[in-house]
């Protein structure tokens, strides 16, 4: 049964390679996208943290994106 699944009557190399390439490429793109997102979140959050507390308060009140990004970054660390 397992042997049949692997060899697939001689077509196994083509079938498995197709699925392998698809999932490796998808996995690499996922990891790269995730890392870039986290890098930007981190940079954005640290830029907000560096601001004076008064300005930080204003920005977090004004921008939902800033407050959301900051809380999302805090969750990951």
């Amino acid at each position: 049964m397992i042997k049949d699944l692997i060899y697939m009557n001689g077509y196994g190399i083509f079938v498995w390679l197709s699925f392998f390439i698809t999932f490796v490429v998808c996995g690499v793109v996922y990891l790269k996208t995730y890392k870039t997102l986290k890098k930007y979140e981190k940079e954005f959050a640290s830029e907000i943290q560096e601001l004076s507390s008064e300005r930080k308060k204003i920005i977090l009140k004004k921008s939902r994106v800033a407050s959301q990004a900051l809380s999302s970054y805090k969750e990951t660390i």
């Binding site: 995730y34 870039t36 997102l37 930007y40 979140e41 830029e47 004004k62 994106v65 990004a69």
Partner: peptide, 19 residues
């Protein structure tokens, strides 16, 4: 969604000084 979120953060980061 992840790429779009990155793009939004990139824009907001650029505009942080203007806020």
């Amino acid at each position: 969604l992840m790429k779009y979120k990155t793009e939004i953060i990139r824009i907001k980061k650029k505009n942080l000084k203007r806020l």
